[in-house]
Simulated assay, not measured.
Amino acid sequence: MKTLLNIIWLVFGGFWLALGYFLAGVVCCLLIVTIPWGIASFRIAAYTLWPFGRMVVDKPGGTGVFSLLGNVIWLLVAGIWIAIGHVVTAFAMAVTIIGIPLAIANLKLIPVSLMPLGKQIVPTNRPFASHYPVRTYR
Rank of each mutant, 00 (worst) to 15 (best):
V134R: 14
L17P: 00
L30A: 13
T136E: 14
V11E: 02
W81K: 05
A24N: 07
A83G: 09
W37G: 03
A129F: 09
Q120H: 06
R43W: 05
I35G: 07
I97H: 10
G99Y: 09
Q120P: 00
L5H: 08
I80A: 13
C29T: 04
A103S: 08
H86P: 00
N106I: 02
I100F: 09
K108D: 01
T136V: 15
Q120E: 13
V33I: 15
L76Q: 10
A45C: 12
Y21T: 05
P51C: 12
W74G: 05
C28R: 01
G62D: 11
W37K: 03
I32P: 03
Y137V: 11
I80K: 04
G38W: 00
T63A: 14
V122I: 13
R54W: 12
R126I: 14
G118F: 09
L75V: 10
V77E: 04
Y47K: 06
K119Y: 05
W16L: 15
L5Q: 08
T124A: 13
L31Q: 09
I110W: 02
I44G: 00
K59E: 10
A129L: 08
Y47N: 07
W9L: 05
S130R: 13
A90M: 06
I44P: 03
I35E: 04
P101S: 03
I121F: 12
F15I: 08
A18Y: 03
Y132A: 15
G79P: 00
K108W: 06
P101G: 01
K119D: 02
R43D: 04
L68D: 12
L117A: 00
N106L: 04
L49Y: 06
V95K: 07
R138I: 06
H131T: 12
